[in-house]
């Protein structure tokens, strides 16, 4: 197996286990499985952080409060009033993206072989902690959810009439562009996340193939951590900008 084949395999999602619905075999890919792991981590962390809240906060409660307050301030800055409805969504999104973009730094954990011994399923041997956001299916649905949220919040806070009017303001000529905007935004949101994460992932794989020791650790600080957090922030930032523009 040469490098390009290895790379192609690493890049593509693969089915871990499948089941049949209506005569169709449906596979659960490693993207979904990694999402489940990330969800479990996030939920356990959130439960730990919010267990017995005290009036005088200690370390862990401070962290949770600081995060929530940061998200509240961030939402308020970008969306003005009504922003409090979007805090949970944006907070969940930024946490999920931050964890999933940087999950490859935990690759030393033998999750795949562990799952293989637990379930006895050979396919789990292929499971490596790779960022699920390098799968275009996930980034597309993330972008779609964000754009649908933009449309819904626009209708919710401005009414159907206000939302329709937004498309012909300030002139009717803009109508096709405003409609096109939805597609372009979805495309650019999803492709930005996908391209950045995939690009840094490929680069890291190449660096790892050339020099397996020490050097990848240095590169991973930029490509995994910095780029991962930056892209998570950018995704949420753009989402909040779109929402803020739509509900204004």
């Amino acid at each position: 197996m040469n490098l390009s084949e290895e790379l192609t395999i690493a890049m593509s999602p693969h089915g871990l286990f499948g089941f049949k619905i209506f005569g169709m075999e449906i596979f659960v890919t490693d993207t979904i499985f990694l999402m489940w792991i990330i969800m479990a981590i996030m939920i356990i962390l959130a439960m730990l952080l919010t267990r017995n809240l005290k009036l005088v906060p200690d370390g862990k409660q401070n962290a949770a409060e600081a995060f929530v307050e940061f998200m509240q301030k961030f939402s308020k800055d970008n969306m003005g009033h009504h922003s409090k409805h979007f805090v949970p969504y944006l907070g969940t999104l930024v946490l999920f993206l931050a964890v999933s973009n940087t999950i490859s730094i935990f690759n030393i954990l033998p999750v795949g072989s562990l799952m293989k011994t637990i379930t006895g399923n050979e396919a789990f041997g292929e499971l490596v902690l790779r960022p699920p956001t390098k799968d275009i299916n996930l980034t597309v649905i993330l972008a779609l959810i964000s754009i649908i949220l933009v449309i819904f919040s626009s209708i919710r806070f401005k009414g159907v009439k206000g939302w329709l009017q937004y498309h012909v303001e300030p002139s009717v000529i803009l109508l096709p562009f405003k409609i096109m905007d939805y597609f372009v935004r979805t495309l650019s949101l999803s492709m930005r996340l996908f391209g950045n994460i995939l690009g840094s992932f490929i680069l890291m794989e190449l660096v790892f193939a050339v020099m397996p020791a020490f050097v990848p650790a240095v590169f991973s600080i930029y490509f995994d951590l910095f780029d991962g957090f930056l892209q998570a922030y950018v995704f949420v930032f753009l989402t909040s900008l779109y929402i803020g523009e739509a509900i204004e």
Binding site: P13, V28, T29, T31, I32, M35, W36, M39, M42, I43, A46, M47, L49, T50, A64, V68, V87, P88, Y89, G91, T92, L95, F96, D135, N137, L138, V140, I141, L142, I145
Partner: peptide, 21 residues
């Protein structure tokens, strides 16, 4: 994958909203 991701994200949103935010 798309459908599962959407369900995952919605469930995650609801749980995080309920237990964290």
């Amino acid at each position: 994958t798309v459908v599962f991701s959407a369900i995952n994200l919605l469930v995650l949103y609801m749980i995080m909203k309920k237990i964290l935010f």
